[in-house]
Design a protein around this nucleic acid. Structure first.
Length: 489
RNA sequence: CGGGGCGUAGCACAGCCUGGUAGUGCGCACGGUUUGGGACCGUGAGGCCGCAAGUUCGAAUCUUGCCGCCCCGACCA
């Protein structure tokens, strides 16, 4: 029904861009590669933040804030880290402008910084520089800190939410006394991300480990969650890194253990970003617009009156008022759209486009019959039910929708996940899209060759992969478990 | 950074080839008729035609340069 929204089947990326625009989530800004997140889109992000933040706090983490600027010398300290991020850094070289004499401004050449400041692409280095002063004894550990911040990675090509030059995220940075504890932390945070993806975003994800090629620059091990989008491409939805003692060594962060010996601290870092907004859109939405899981919907229920005269509207409003009250009391966000500048049909389409999970329609016929129309966004079905007790039904229905949106995504992923043992089939499968589980001989060379030939990358080595004898899909060399291949965003 | 497309009203676009009063649709404002799936009629407001230089009596239109955006690739969360 939507006017002019492209079909997913015809042009997936245009469909995506249009949804972002038309559902009023975000827009491209005047600044290249950067987005403006609009109030409706930001409201979804805030719900994500809230849920995640609660989970972080529940596991003992605290929020803090570190600077936007990273001195160049900090970034240089961890070699692999430096190399990994060098190509995508914005650099501040001056601290002052001056009039150019033509009514404009120019960089004041006399205000050159002694040392350039990098706009953080991530904060390991500033944070570990600070931790050096925070950590002396084993009693200072663990440090469990998270920050909500913006970061900048100068990307060649950007796509709103999925890859922007500036994005919002959270980055957790923890320090531990033992390797074991740091690994446990890394795994715990991965579990939290998976839990969040599945229970809040209604997006099933595969937990796994990155191959050395795909590993975070400076990490010993990178864990990730991978989701499958409706076009068959994979999207990395969160990462959790075990950093070993790499940053502790680079920044000389030592502590005295119980035996009075000096040891380097063990580190983790983990993050999810506004990219999750992209995942949310691409996982569930349809040709009518956005589909939001109720738990992340800024408006969970919209009530649309259908009326002819102001008297009708007054009568409907009177009936709606207690429903609104009851829903609000139950913690459900509800909007009664009694605006008179659009007609009901327009509103139906508009709220569908915006992904509001439940729409209640109430007209004069309903008032006579004591009924109300309940429409589900996810299935696009509607039914008439008694107006008495509707708040209770809505509460139950929201949970049902949350579950069924997840179920649909899960079925999609399962029917698009293929174990493959034959090279030709592998190429064919990858081309068509979806997750492909295949054997790999464990070498970077093979991984790169496969990428070159098929565009597929190893998304992860799934944590739950069963051990089985097999042969590498490309080389035929021995392999003991399947890894997850896909074309990725 | 390569390849392709495009900059004209808030948005989507036509006009450009062949130089001569800047247009259409949506949206917006006002009035009226409508109202159970994106209503209709009337009136009206809204423009430095991306920027700069050139050609010309005259440039949205021709020439050159610049800037920006989108799509497809290589790089990445």
């Amino acid at each position: 029904m939507s006017k002019g929204l492209p079909k997913r089947s015809e042009n997936y990326s245009e469909w995506y861009n249009e949804i972002v625009k038309r559902a009023d989530l975000a827009e491209n800004s005047a600044v290249r590669g950067c987005m403006v997140i609009k109030p409706y889109g930001f409201a979804i992000w805030e719900k994500m933040q809230r849920a995640l933040d609660d989970m972080f706090k529940a596991t003992g983490h605290q929020n803090a804030y570190f600077p936007l600027f990273v001195p160049r010398s900090f970034l240089e300290k961890e070699e692999e880290h430096a190399e990994g991020f060098a190509k995508e850094c914005a650099v501040v070289t001056h601290y002052r402008l001056k009039a150019d004499g033509e009514g404009g401004l120019m960089v004041d050449p006399n205000a050159k910084l002694e040392e350039e400041l990098i706009i953080r692409p991530t904060s390991e280095t500033v944070i570990w520089n600070a931790y050096k002063n925070w950590i002396q004894s084993w009693r200072d550990l663990p440090i469990l800190v998270n920050q909500w911040a913006n970061v900048v990675r100068w990307e060649m090509r950007t796509r709103i939410f999925l890859r922007t030059a500036e994005f919002l995220w959270q980055e957790g940075h923890t320090a531990h006394a033992t390797e074991k504890e740091a690994i446990a932390e890394t795994e715990q945070m991965l579990d939290i991300y998976a839990d969040f993806a599945e229970n809040w975003m209604a997006l099933p994800v595969i937990k796994g480990m990155k191959t050395p090629n795909e590993r975070f620059a400076g990490a010993v091990e990178t864990y990730c969650i991978e989701g499958l989008m409706q076009d068959g491409k994979a999207l990395q939805c969160g990462t959790s890194h075990f950093l070993g003692q790499n940053f502790a060594k680079s920044f000389d962060v030592k502590f005295v253990n119980k035996e009075n010996q000096l040891e380097y601290a063990w580190a983790t870092s983990w993050g999810v970003s506004t990219r999750l907004m992209g995942a949310l859109i691409m996982a569930h939405s349809d040709d009518n617009g956005l589909v939001l899981p109720p738990k992340l919907a800024p408006i969970q229920v919209v009530i649309v009156p259908i009326y002819k005269s102001p008297e009708d509207l007054a009568a409907i409003s009177e009936k709606v008022e207690p429903i609104v009250k009851e829903l609000k009391a139950a913690g459900i966000s509800v909007k009664f759209d009694d605006s008179d500048n659009q007609r009901s049909g327009w509103k139906f389409a508009e709220y569908e486009l915006r992904g509001v999970p439940i729409r209640l329609g109430l007209g004069m016929r309903d008032l006579e019959n004591g009924t109300i129309e309940v429409a589900r966004r996810d299935t696009l079905t509607k039914e008439s039910m008694p107006i008495d007790g509707v708040a209770e039904s809505v509460k139950i229905l929201l949970d049902k929708i949350q579950a069924s949106v997840y179920q649909r995504a899960l079925e999609f992923r399962d029917t698009n996940t293929f174990p493959v043992d034959d090279w030709d089939e592998f190429c064919d499968r990858v081309e068509k899209g979806g997750f492909v589980l295949a054997h790999w001989d464990g070498t970077s060379e093979t991984e790169e060759q496969i990428k070159e030939k098929t565009k597929a990358t190893i998304r992860c080595i799934p944590l739950n992969a069963p051990v089985e004898d097999g042969k590498c899909i490309l080389t035929g060399n021995a392999s003991d478990k399947r890894v997850l291949f896909a074309k990725a965003y």
